[in-house]
Design a protein around this nucleic acid. Structure first.
Lengths: 103, 103
DNA sequence: CTAACAGTTCAATATTCCCGAACTATTAAA
DNA sequence: TTTAATAGTTCGGGAATATTGAACTGTTAG
């Protein structure tokens, strides 16, 4: 049974956060999550051509960067943006990224 | 003679810019360049343990991301931040990064 | 000239990323 | 109940990237 670990935002270094965002697919997912309240893993996918193992890895990375929270609900995993926490840790960063994200 | 190519900022995708910033050494260099008007390559180095070929590659990457401009002056290369242009292309991004950069 | 300097380029190694295959867990259907 | 389908994770090996020592280019100081 998958149990996810979510870092405290204080433990997330800036370069890790930037690295998590520095990918078109992950940017797409973050944009979707920002526009929606919560999404399943496949629901967060930026397109349907991306393999699910890859998708899973992207989400793991976003989790490790403190960007999303994942909890199990039935057989789905529900992902949500940790927006308030992330914004407090890195003020203005996510806003700037989302404002420029044309994906 | 090394002649550098600098992209138009319009041609720099967001994920490339983020990728360029998503590294502690490059963040250190950008912070230095933001604090100083111009720096040689070795002068921009975040520490002196980093090999110069690595340093050269980091600077090439920052150049490709539209973050810095490099021109030759004698036998040195003078690097400057393309701050105004970058800010116009990605409003608030560099500010957010520099504000959170503790390196 | 010659030597030293500032940095680039190249190529080999090390690291990271991607994705198919196999797996776990949960629920819907028969 | 089983059985099958769904939703996702994990693992491993090949592909792609990054790092860095060595050799090189171009510039200036002596």
């Amino acid at each position: 049974m998958p149990r996810f670990t979510h870092p405290r935002l204080d433990d997330v270094p800036l370069d890790l956060a930037l690295h998590a965002l520095a990918d078109p697919n992950r940017l797409g997912m973050i944009a979707r999550l920002a526009a929606t309240q919560q999404l399943s893993c496949t629901g967060a996918a930026p397109c349907d051509s991306i393999p699910k193992s890859t998708l899973s890895n992207h989400l793991k990375l976003l989790r490790a960067a403190g960007l999303i929270e994942t909890k199990q609900a039935g057989r789905e995993m529900i992902n949500t943006l940790r927006r308030a926490e992330f914004d407090q840790r890195f003020p203005g960063l996510l806003d700037a990224v989302l404002a420029n994200n044309l994906y």
